[in-house]
Design a protein around this nucleic acid. Structure first.
Lengths: 333, 333
DNA sequence: CTGAAAGCGCTAACAT
DNA sequence: ATGTTAGCGCTTTCAG
């Protein structure tokens, strides 16, 4: 790989001039610029990133650490992040923590070590990598879930009222024993959705019962188990509010196994919309979260911080909204 | 952020010793190691990546550049890559080229500039960033689609015979006018699936006709259009082979619009399995590709190259297999 | 076993 | 407007 001094030699100038010419800094005679550019092109010169980063003490890359690449909710976020980062001249690297605190910590570590300009993090839970962020000057914004240490901005969704509304919707449709499958305890979104579900029950003057609630990780296989357990009870629920896409799939599988029909035998509302949700029969009612927007505002916030705006830590809360489809049609009597 | 010399001062040793102690290189008195480790911990020292990379002339991160983060096929690949990379002590950063050659080139550029140890690339098409890879010593492996320049290894899927088999399957199920929606021309997987489809028609002694073929990008909206156009013809197809997941969704939407039932009015087989495919009514028949495995073998190949194994460029072809479900059930007569 | 010192490739003062 | 030079923070010969 050609170095800057080779380019300088070939163009018959100093390395400083090459640097200036290639970076558009300072003022360089246009004829020299042309020579430098030509020399660089001929040699296939590409500046050495680490050297530049070391010297400049900054990079132009953002790290986005999410807990599950296979979850459309997070990939939608990443699209949002990328669109604004890209427009501002930043690259974004996506790291998949796989909901594993160790991996998350590891990725936060490499991000910091490599001196990324900022990090966007959807924390896996209680013991996330945020400790590393402490003290370090690197700007962070939390996505979807707040950062325990309260360092940096956060972009959240008002998931609790949305869960309440969805629960109420099921009740209005005639379902009387609404159950809930949510995520692991300690994860804020899982807790918020459960709390909202209870809010809804309360508002409907329905008793909530532990036998109607199950937890699982946000994965399909655990969800299928949880749904089976819920449905296999003596007095099973006649409707379900479930906390994400993957859980919805598990629940639908369990319903199918039992020969139960969504939107008739069992009302169903899931968090997170998906392209296939309306293809199901009946189509799946969902609480749609503004994932893409979370990405864009998160990235804007982060870029603002990087730009040096010394504002207080902010929390932006976006709204989710209920999309009523067939899986929550009125309960036949 | 604490520097190595601060750690050295605090531990009362030289920076060289700190470096050796922290990296487990050379032999350092165990008591000194303890002092260094303690000092580092107290200061919250984390080595500066760019400085280290500059000095070492190598990094321990892999770049994985895929064309669509929202496509489960590619996220499954990324899981495979990550699992093996992680086990070998490498981090992987995911870059989303969005099937845009410019973005792809840009990402290849940053990857090379930042001196990643290697890159895994699913090239967007003809004019991909592979030109940059030329000459540069950085190892590359192509995933899913071959690299035009034939630099480096490739991990592909025998998608053509699979398409042939799927087409034949539809014919055997009694469908007589099998159509095909594939990806943009010039993209090898799109071409291979189309070729396989034609192979299948030929093997079944059926005439292939341009009026039964449509192309669109690998996105849902274009696919919906394409399917409408196919279905709206005077003599429409009675079955469809479609080239990926997103296209399948578009096709299913178009079928629903026209009141056509998959697996009865119109047989349907799609490339790529998905968690929701079996939840549809009828469940979706698919050609399942070994995406996760592509990731693992790709990463292994890459690590091998990085390790300096100076082998010839290899091409590994994995097998896809047909999963027959309800959307290709025998055509009622 | 440990320290001194050179230098990775680049950019930014500073000098001309 | 261009060149000279001093590092950025680290690792690694090379001495001791």
């Amino acid at each position: 790989m050609a170095r800057i001094n080779e380019v300088a030699d070939r163009a018959g100038v100093s390395t400083a001039t090459v640097s200036r010419a290639l970076n558009g800094k300072g003022t360089v005679d246009s004829e020299l610029v042309a020579r430098v550019v030509a020399a660089a092109a001929e040699l296939g010169y590409r500046p050495n990133g680490p050297a530049r980063n070391l010297r400049r003490q900054e990079t132009t890359v953002l790290a986005l650490i999410i807990s599950d690449v296979e979850n459309p909710f997070f990939t939608a976020i990443s699209r949002g992040v990328e669109d604004v980062a890209h427009a501002a001249g930043y690259s974004v690297v996506l790291c998949n923590s796989d909901d594993d605190p160790d991996k998350e910590r590891a990725y936060v570590g490499v991000a910091l070590r490599e001196q990324v300009a900022g990090v966007l993090l959807s924390p896996t839970g209680r013991t996330s990598g945020h400790e590393l962020l402490r003290g370090d000057g690197t700007p962070v914004v939390a996505l979807d879930r707040p950062l325990p240490g309260a360092t940096g901005d956060a972009v959240l969704v008002d998931t609790r009222p949305a869960a309440r509304q969805a629960t109420l919707h099921l009740v209005e449709q005639g379902y009387r024993r609404v159950g809930c499958i949510t995520g692991p305890s300690g994860i804020s979104t899982a807790e918020a959705r459960l709390a909202g579900y209870r809010d809804g029950l309360r508002a409907a003057k329905l008793r909530s019962s532990a036998s109607l609630v199950r937890r699982c990780d946000f994965k399909t296989s655990g969800a299928r188990q949880a749904a089976r357990s819920l449905l296999g009870q003596p007095d099973p629920p006649d409707a379900l509010l479930v906390a994400n896409n993957a859980i919805a799939i598990g629940a639908l599988e369990a319903l199918a196994e039992s020969g139960l029909r969504p939107g008739a035998d069992v009302g169903l509302v899931s968090f997170d919309d998906a392209p296939w949700a309306k293809l199901l029969d009946p189509p799946l009612s969902v609480v749609a979260q503004p994932a893409y927007d979370m990405g864009t505002v998160g990235a804007q916030l982060l870029l603002g911080r990087i730009g040096g705006e010394r504002l207080e830590a902010t929390t932006t809360t976006l709204s989710a909204h209920l999309v009523e489809r067939g899986s929550s049609s009125p309960r036949p009597r």
